[in-house]
Design a protein around this nucleic acid. Structure first.
Length: 272
DNA sequence: ATGTCGGCAAAATGCCGA
């Protein structure tokens, strides 16, 4: 069972990139962020033709989240993060799919920092901590996937002398503390579980032309509830996607979970 | 300090968000 999260940065402009990646990597479940399209313009037919059912929450021009499932239709369990009825931005969708409760999270960027956008980000993180706690208490098998817009630790950002990210909302101690608090509820950071140290970039800034020199950040994360974490067998980043023509500034991150089905296939190894 | 991109309103340029 391969589950991926991908900030597509405009699902219609980058539909060819998305379809090519789905065709090559064939993830079973996909969490998408930054659709940048209204509900009516979501490419539901193109995705169905590619073999994927979808649920989504769109928004004009900005934000927007979706969950895709290969050969299945996700069942929406929640749209929008609870805790603020005045928050109308499409940044959260949650669905039951293939035996998991999966999210697509597009956490607020929070820049410029300090300012109202950073305040909104921190409040959003607090709301997420509360809701994630409720989800854990429910006992559901959780895969909290998305673009968290948080660089969890210093090893999750490239080393630079100028330190041009010093004031950025993505690396602030408050952002990191909230992410830590989320993990401390009992979640496993899947990518770091598999790759405990070293670069694991999922984002390379257009601005500083950081892709060609491979200076990136780790912003896209999977938080797994304990029972799901026990089934984690592999994780990685589909870096090749970032090098394509008209690429998003993010690459897809993915996890592989051992299910009954895949256990059988791994047992079918040839003898030594 | 800047960079790149794209969307948007409202004019083909500048502002804003990431």
């Amino acid at each position: 069972m391969k589950i991926a999260t991908f900030n597509i940065n405009n699902v219609n402009n980058r539909l060819p990139n998305l379809l090519q990646w789905l065709e090559v990597e064939k993830p079973d479940i996909v969490s998408l962020q930054e659709l940048k399209t209204e509900d009516g313009s979501f490419p539901v037919k193109a995705l169905a033709d590619a073999g994927y059912g979808a649920v989504w929450s769109g928004e004009r021009s900005w934000n927007g989240v979706a969950i895709l499932a290969r050969g299945a239709e996700p069942v929406v369990t929640r749209r929008g993060l609870p805790g603020d009825d005045a928050d109308t931005q499409s940044r959260y969708i949650e669905a039951a799919v293939k035996g998991f409760l999966v999210t697509s999270i597009y956490l607020p960027n929070g820049n410029p920092q300090p300012g109202p956008k950073f305040t909104y980000k921190l409040k959003w993180l607090e709301r997420l901590i509360l809701h994630a706690g409720d989800l854990l208490a429910s006992g559901a098998p959780l895969v909290l996937a998305g673009d968290y817009n948080v660089v969890p630790t210093e090893q999750d950002i490239y080393v630079s002398k100028s330190n041009s990210y010093a004031k950025n909302a993505l690396v602030q101690p408050e952002s990191r503390a909230a992410f830590r608090k989320l993990l401390d509820l009992g979640f496993t950071d899947a990518l770091r579980k598999i790759h405990p140290s070293g670069p694991l970039w999922t984002f390379w800034d257009y601005k500083r032309r950081l892709w060609p020199i491979d200076k990136g950040l780790r912003l896209d994360h999977f938080l797994l509830s304990p029972a799901v974490a026990k089934t984690l067998v592999d994780a990685g980043v589909d870096r090749w996607v970032r090098g394509e023509e008209s690429a998003s500034d993010h690459a897809p991150a993915w996890i592989e979970l051992q299910t009954g089905k895949s256990r059988k296939s791994t047992k079918r190894r040839s003898p030594k």
